[in-house]
């Protein structure tokens, strides 16, 4: 398979000023030395708790945030070195879908204007070609043409998200970052939008970085899944491998924590095993999961584990843990 996007040792640090007169400066490592690849036509799911840096990672990959260090290669071109016009040109083939369709659509623009915006920004097509394209897109996201003259306020959450998807697809991008695109929607609407997204993936053949905190959602749409914990990737594997034989203790805990909608005497008696996160126990050198990990030993507090192959399929299944082989 061809690599479309390669992220190498990407980091994004924020400086946090606190204390009296904000003199005390500390560094928050939102994304810390993250590397991965996305192949063409593939969807990589990215899961983690809130605050683990998954959205920052998604934005930094598109250079919506400037990286502190590291580089991103899109079709072999280094994005970090690109400036102004070149970056703008390459952005045409990279799009983003945001979480909250209530704030990602401009309330003063009609649906038609919103969908035309990408064509206008990148000066693509004549006016009639643009119109044709918009009609095609609207049909694809199963919305009637009468909606063209309406404003976002007239639309429900699910409809707005479909417009946001149509806008992202307008210029036939090769790569889309979808940041929690269904978390703001009700369960029944969620499944509708997910089905739409996966059918487009087949049809248009784009690659996707799909960010979500919901494991069941990620499982439905991804080919491979990466698990993030406090700024680092702890496990990355093919979907089947990750869900059937998770290796990292955090991934295991995450899967165990999802409540199952089935009556099960055993699960009703069982207690969740993970210790609560205690900020004061975090060691700057060692593994980020150290204070909560049931397997933790001395080495875990001293040395940060790197992602390395594990299990039966070491090329596709990588885990960052000293105790997993």
């Amino acid at each position: 398979m061809k690599t479309l996007l390669k992220v190498s040792s990407l980091s994004k640090y924020y400086t946090v000023k606190e204390g009296f007169f904000r003199k005390k400066v500390s560094i928050l490592k939102a994304v810390d030395d993250v590397s991965f690849e996305i192949f063409s036509g593939e969807t990589l799911g990215l899961v983690g708790e809130s605050g683990c840096g998954k959205s920052t990672l998604g934005r930094t990959v598109l250079r919506l945030n400037e990286a502190t260090s590291g580089d991103i290669f899109f079709k072999g071109i280094s994005l970090a070195s690109l400036g102004g016009g070149d970056l703008r040109k390459i952005r045409r083939s990279m799009q983003m879908i945001f979480q909250d369709p209530y704030s990602s659509l401009n309330p003063f623009m009609t649906i038609e204007e919103t969908l035309k915006e990408p064509f206008y920004v990148h000066s693509v097509g004549t006016s009639s070609e643009q119109d044709e394209c918009i009609r095609f897109l609207l049909d694809k996201v199963r919305m009637p043409l009468s909606y063209l003259k309406r404003y976002p306020k007239d639309l429900s959450g699910g409809q707005r998200q479909r417009i946001a998807i149509a806008r992202a697809l307008a210029l036939k991008p090769d790569f889309i970052v979808a940041d929690e695109p269904v978390s703001a929607l009700d369960v029944s609407i969620q499944s509708e939008v997910l089905q739409l997204l996966s059918s487009f993936k087949e049809e248009f053949g784009f690659s996707c970085l799909f960010i979500s905190h919901d494991l069941a959602v990620v499982e439905q749409i991804s080919d491979r899944v990466a698990v993030m914990y406090l700024g680092s990737l702890v496990e990355i594997a093919r979907k089947e491998d990750l869900f059937s034989s998770p290796k990292h203790p955090y991934t295991k805990a995450l899967l165990e924590a999802v409540p199952r909608p089935v009556y099960d005497e055993e699960r009703r008696k069982k207690y969740f095993s993970l210790k609560p996160l205690d900020e004061k126990m975090r060691s700057p050198l060692g593994c980020a999961f150290y204070s909560r990990c049931p397997l933790a030993t001395r080495i875990c507090s001293e040395e940060k584990p790197m992602l390395k192959g594990a299990g039966n399929n070491p090329f596709n299944h990588k885990v960052a843990c000293h105790h997993v082989t």
Binding site: E49, S50, L215, P259, F272
Partner: peptide
């Protein structure tokens, strides 16, 4: 809350 935090709170309530 996140799933792991949710599981912790549910455990607490149960206990």
């Amino acid at each position: 809350l996140d799933v792991t935090t949710q599981a912790e709170i549910l455990d607490l309530l149960r206990e």
